[in-house]
Structures are given as C-alpha cells and as structure tokens.
Amino acid sequence: MSSMVDTGEPTRLQRIWQSNMAYSFRRNPVAVVSLVIFLIIAVMSLLAPVIAPFDPYDPASIDIMNSEYPPAWVEGSEPEFILGTDDQGRDLWSTILYGTRLSLIIGLCAVGLQAFLGISIGLIAGYIGGRLDNILMRLADIQLSFSTLMVAIIFLAVTQAMFGSETFNQYAIFFLIAVIGVAEWPQYARTVRATVLAEKRKEYVDSARVLGFGAGRIMVRHILPNSLSPIFVISTVQVANAIISEASLSFLGLGMPPSQPSLGSLISSGFDYIFSGSWWITAIPGVVLVVLVLVINLLGDWMRDVLNPKLYKG
C-alpha cells in the first residue's frame, strides 16, 4: 500500500526492498540469520590482514616455543592467544582468519570459473542445438558420471608428483581453482541449456532476431537475463560444495600447504595432535568450516524455495 501513498518513483533500493523476494527474505528468520553470519565471516576474513593480531605467513612472528597453547578459556593458556596456538606456534585466531579467506576465495573463484564455462557452453548448446548440442551434452553426461572429488584428487596427485611439492605448493591455489572450476561445469551447462530451450521459442527472441541482432547478442543480452534464477540457485549450492571440496583436498595434502593453510589444511595438521589432547587445532577451524558451509546451504535452500520450487530434486 505504501507505494500508492508515496509520491514520485520509488528508488532502486526501495524497489528491491519491496520486491517479493525481499519480503519472503524478511519473513524468514533462518535466511536472515544465515546471511548475517555469512556476511560477518566474509567481512572478517577479507579484512584478515587488518584485524588479525599476528601474520601467520611471516616466519619471524612465529615462535615454535609457543606451540600448542590451548584457547583462553582452558587452563594453561597464554592470554596473548585468544584461541590458542597450533602445532607450529602460530596464533590460531589469526591463522583461521587467513585460512577462511583462502577457503572463501578459492570457493568463489572456482564457482566463477564453473559458471563462466557452464553458462557459455549451455547457451551455445541450447541456442545452436543440433549435432553440437548432442556432443556437448554427451560430454556433460560423461563428466558428471565421474565424481568431482575423484577427478580432483587424481589430477592434483599427478600434478604434485610431476612438479614436486615445492612448485606445487606455490601454485596450489590456482590448481585448486582450476580443477574444481573445470570439473563441475556440467551442473551449469545442463540447467542453462534447459532454460534456453524454453526461452528460445518465446516471442521476444523472435522479435530480437527480426530486428537483426546477432546470435551472440541475443544469447547474452536477451536469453541469459531470463535464465538467471536457476543460475543463482545452483551457485549457492556450488559455492558450499566447492568449499567442502577444497577443504577435503587440502586435508589429503593435495591442496593448500601447511605454510599457507586453508581451513582444510589447518584441520589436517591438527588431526595429528588430536590423540595428545590438543583438540582445538582441529575443532575450532572445523566449526568455522561447518558454520560457513551450513549458512551458505541454508541460504541456498531458501533461495530455491523462493525462486524455483520445481528445482528441489538437486
């Protein structure tokens, strides 16, 4: 009703606030809390160099004598280290901030790569169709039939053996993004292709073609904006999956090295100390990882309910 009382055009922000999606968001406490937690984690980890009390990448600030101090609320702790220290004497709080940043960056970049590859291939396959479509979708089927984790493990293992761990560790972040990014493109390609096939028959596409627009322009400027909602839904789930994949690979020693740990490699280095009672090196990064993935999944669930109720089978 407020829009009728208001004079003048609503601003863009107001229109977003009044949209159906924002309304259902405000009415859903789980989604609101998830987004708030996600934003807190994201902002804090991106600001890691500013807020972290120590620099975990700087060997000069690390003293092995400080190793395995428990968190502040446990007996025998050192007040300097709020969450305790890890096996190498690094402040766990700072290391987790930096590690979360790495996990988020790898997750987001990998999904960006997936989306770019998948959307391009999906658009082309759906719009051009015919034999090319057939070949591309057959490839997607084959790629999907192999688990991403398996492909990533084998690819990274061979890369590591080939380049030696020294070089591998240096470029680990790029290898991780590349392999997680490439292995999952069919998820996007299939969905985009399906929506393109539906959109292609609509009148606005015909009229665009009659106006003489090229295929590229029609695909990107006309069809793509109308296929965005399933893309959003997939993207949230994919980010959560990518973060889990990265953590799993790093845990196996095929990802980020212990000198530059992501959450997965931190958990992995803590695992060796769990039997001697130093549970915090594993447990605290583990909790951060689970909370991060959980809030992304919850947001994805909400988005799926709002945008595309038919997609629930994922």
């Binding site: 889990i244 799993s248 958990i267 039997f275 583990g286 993935v293």
Partner: peptide, 22 residues
C-alpha cells in the same frame, strides 16, 4: 540433514574418532 550435508566426511570421521576412540 542439511547440517549433515554441510559437514565434510573427514570432519565427521575425526569427530567420531575423538568421541568414541579418544
């Protein structure tokens, strides 16, 4: 189930080792 999906396999495994074995 959504919490389950969000916990990586290796973390579940470590958690169980900690609780049931250690």
């Amino acid at each position: 189930s959504i919490v389950g999906i969000s916990i990586p396999v290796f973390l579940t495994a470590i958690l169980m080792i900690y609780v049931f074995s250690v």
